[in-house]
């Protein structure tokens, strides 16, 4: 997928291809390769300052910059959507610095960089999914010492992770963690899928696409190679459950997918629509319609 590219981006003389210099990209690729070799293990890397603030996806951007080539087709999503601020800004960043084709169609993309969501459509072996990660360490909130958490990973001491789940059940009656739900990768490393909703956890298991995770501020890269076992942690008497929605998507009628709540007015009207905007559009293109119709603002009761 990647190749050494001597030419510069479409904006010409200002930036190297994909913004980072070639040595930095090699350094990041080495970290990625190590991450792939040890699934779920957090590989430290020398994250660079990026021309955007921490929290905007500097880790994911660096991973994408290290693996992207001239012939790639990039899809950029934020909360499942292609047209929210983070997605638009980062897509434009790569258009500016690489000149690659971009798409909103999941199946046309060779690299998908995401904040939060895994696309509803199954990914294939020719695709790479890059996650933007804010806090890579799943044990962090219970064990603040980095030296200690590294030791716990090394020795597979993961009892503490269940203490967190225990607290959830004791406080709320069920495992209330709805995102960043810890998973066990290939029976070895406990990993934080980071802010993806737990609805997406089962998709990580045995996924055909390569999954790469980049945390810029925390300077960590980790990976799940294709066809890797990913199991969400749980208790025998409180098994892992995905989020369920009571209604289908309001505008495309899809069921058993992840929905966003959208407030429609000041009178308490709201609707639930697909979080994956491309998935929703494709369904509407082939004629599916939800109970609020194609334009909810014109629907009855919403004027």
């Amino acid at each position: 997928m990647t190749e050494r590219v001597e030419t510069q981006g479409i904006s010409g003389e200002h930036y190297n291809f994909a913004y980072l210099d070639e040595q930095t990209k090699r350094m990041i690729r080495r970290a990625i390769l190590k991450g792939i070799a040890v699934p779920g293990y957090q590989v430290p890397f020398a994250a660079r300052e990026m021309p955007m603030p921490y929290g905007w996806g500097t880790g994911g951007v660096q991973v994408t910059a290290a693996v992207i080539g001239k012939n790639d087709c990039l899809k950029m999503i934020d909360q499942g959507s292609d047209d929210t601020t983070n997605a638009v800004a980062l897509r434009n960043f790569f258009v500016e610095t690489t000149g690659v084709d971009t798409t909103t169609k999941t199946k046309d993309a060779s690299i998908i960089q995401t904040r939060h969501r895994i696309p509803e459509e199954n990914l294939t072996k020719d695709q790479v999914l890059v996650y933007q990660v804010p806090i890579p360490e799943p044990l962090r909130f219970l064990e603040p010492r980095e030296t200690e958490t590294r030791k716990m990973h090394a020795l597979e001491e993961y009892g503490l992770m269940h203490v967190k789940l225990y607290e959830d059940i004791a406080k709320f009656g069920h495992i209330a963690t709805a995102y960043a739900y810890p998973v066990m990768v290939q029976d070895r490393y406990v990993m934080d899928p980071s802010p993806t909703p737990k609805f997406d956890n089962p998709k990580m298991d045995q996924m055909e696409a390569l999954q790469l995770f980049g945390a810029g501020r925390e300077k960590r890269i980790y990976a799940i190679p294709p066809h890797t076992k990913v199991v969400s942690l749980d208790f025998e008497d409180h098994p892992f459950e995905v989020t369920k929605f009571e209604q289908p998507c309001a505008i495309c009628g899809a069921e058993e997918i992840y929905l966003d709540e959208v407030i429609l007015d000041d009178a308490g009207n709201r609707m639930f629509v697909c979080s994956d905007s491309d998935f929703c559009e494709e369904r509407r293109d082939v004629g599916h319609v939800g109970h609020l119709g194609t334009n909810p603002l014109e629907a009855e009761g919403n004027d």
Partner: peptide
């Protein structure tokens, strides 16, 4: 562990040795 409940404090060692039944 001052930030988790008394029950979790007592249960931590059990979970550390593999207890997985809440």
């Amino acid at each position: 562990r001052m930030t988790v409940s008394a029950g979790a404090n007592v249960g931590e060692r059990l979970m550390a040795v593999g207890a997985r039944h809440y």
